[in-house]
């Protein structure tokens, strides 16, 4: 099997030039100028907090919530690690947006036949053996493309080799069971508004614990109710014969 790809984003190297966001628009054919927030026309944005630049984009979870909740299975985690979206299936319930722990997917609110929009890890380019548009455009190597396992090892090495420069945590290593996009930072990712209260297991597990019990509830519940009906019905029948003082027929 092909190795899973990913991105390592080192916020200490980011100079906030926005080349990644521009390249992203070009590669994905998204209209408009540089934007401040993720939108249906911006799959990634560069933001600044206290003089530190960071990016927002789909984290490409190992076990994505969006894929798990979609009633029509419009999301797919590909072998390359990209979480992609099949617009032709989508009914527009927006459960993916509601469920995403990173609040990434956006919607074409103004359109009459709207689609969900989000970073797809330049999936088409990956298939051609190219790297993502953002990583290619990055002048400082702040966004680096590669195999996820190698990127994770490199991130840990950077933390080890530069004591004090980083928070001792690779964001995306364990969060919700791991993500294909990894972050290194000198300050906790929570400072940038990234959720820090995420469990280290995949969130879809929480749904599955309840949902997997449904078939047995249906079968045993049905049998139980039918049994109840039969017993009560039979007892009433017997009571009725008793009232008439007759021998009841055999059941």
């Amino acid at each position: 099997m092909e190795k899973k790809k990913g991105l390592l984003i080192d916020t200490t190297l980011c100079i906030g030039c926005g080349a990644c966001a521009t390249a992203c628009k070009e590669v994905n054919g998204l209209p408009g100028e540089t934007e401040q927030e993720l939108s249906a026309t911006a799959y990634t944005v560069v933001k600044e907090k206290n003089g530190i630049y960071y990016r927002r984009l789909c984290m490409h979870c190992e076990e994505p919530s969006c894929k798990s909740v979609c009633p029509v299975g419009a999301f797919e985690k590909t072998a390359e690690g990209a979480v992609i979206y099949h617009a032709n299936k989508c009914i527009g319930c927006r459960y993916c947006m509601q469920a995403c722990p990173f609040s990434i997917p956006t919607y074409e609110w103004k359109k009459r036949a709207p689609k969900v929009k989000k970073c797809i890890l330049c999936y088409e380019r990956l298939k051609e053996g190219k790297i993502t548009g953002c990583a290619e455009a990055c002048p400082t190597g702040a966004t680096k493309f590669g195999d996820r396992e190698e990127l994770l090892a490199e991130a840990k090495k950077r933390i080890q080799d530069n004591p004090g420069q980083y928070v001792d945590h690779v964001y995306g290593d364990k969060e919700v069971g791991g993500t294909s996009v990894l972050f290194l930072s000198a300050v906790p990712m929570g400072d940038f508004g990234y959720p820090t209260n995420l469990p280290d297991y995949p969130l879809p597990r929480l749904t599955w614990e309840a949902l997997s019990k449904v078939p047995s509830i249906a079968i045993f519940g049905g049998a139980f109710l039918y049994g109840m009906w039969w017993i009560i019905d039979r007892r009433m029948e017997l009571a009725e014969y008793k009232a008439k003082e007759k021998e009841p027929p055999k059941a």
Partner: peptide, 26 residues
């Protein structure tokens, strides 16, 4: 009114995702 593509409201019938509680509800 709520879904973005009401013309596809029947899609869950043909492409269900068993992991989705919304599929089960639908």
């Amino acid at each position: 009114f709520d879904v973005g593509r009401p013309d596809r409201i029947y899609n869950p019938l043909f492409m269900g995702n068993l992991h989705s509680p919304l599929f089960e509800v639908a």
